[in-house]
Simulated assay, not measured.
Amino acid sequence: MLREWATLDRDLTVVGVGTHAEIWDTAAWTAYSEQTAADFADVDEEVIPGIF
């Protein structure tokens, strides 16, 4: 039941996030990761002024 709810198919990706792990459908993780990377690259502000 949980696999259906989380739309977990055959190919899975396990990602460490802080103090826990997340299990993603690989296709969903790839799409999320690419979008997040693109959004992060679009940020105009420096993360730590003068360093990053």
Rank of each mutant, 00 (worst) to 15 (best):
E45A: 07
H20D: 15
E34S: 07
T7D: 15
M1N: 11
A6T: 01
I51Q: 14
T26M: 04
A38D: 03
D39R: 14
D9L: 05
I48H: 06
F40N: 15
F52C: 08
A28H: 02
R10K: 10
T13Y: 00
A27K: 15
A6Q: 05
A37M: 14
E45P: 00
A28Q: 06
H20P: 00
G16L: 07
L8M: 03
L12K: 05
S33C: 15
D44A: 15
F52V: 13
V15F: 01
A37Q: 12
V15Q: 08
A38S: 08
E46D: 08
I51G: 03
G16S: 07
A38W: 00
T30R: 09
Q35R: 09
Q35D: 13
D39Y: 12
T13P: 00
R10Y: 03
A21L: 10
I48E: 11
G50E: 04
I51R: 13
G18H: 03
M1Y: 02
A37I: 11
S33P: 00
V14G: 03
W29L: 03
R3G: 01
A6W: 02
I48V: 15
G50V: 13
T30Q: 09
T19E: 10
H20E: 13
I48K: 12
D44T: 13
V15R: 08
A28L: 05
R10S: 06
D11M: 07
W5G: 06
V14L: 10
A27M: 14
E45V: 10
Q35C: 04
I51A: 09
E46V: 07
G16H: 06
L8F: 01
V43M: 14
R3M: 05
A41K: 07
F40G: 06
D9H: 10
G16D: 04
V47F: 13
E34C: 03
G18A: 08
G18D: 12
W29E: 01
D44Y: 03
L2K: 09
L12N: 00
E46C: 12
L12M: 11
R10F: 02
E45Q: 12
V15E: 07
A31R: 08
R10M: 05
L12Q: 02
S33E: 08
L2P: 01
I51N: 07
V47E: 05
H20M: 09
E22L: 15
E46F: 06
M1T: 12
A28G: 05
A27S: 13
A21Y: 14
V47A: 14
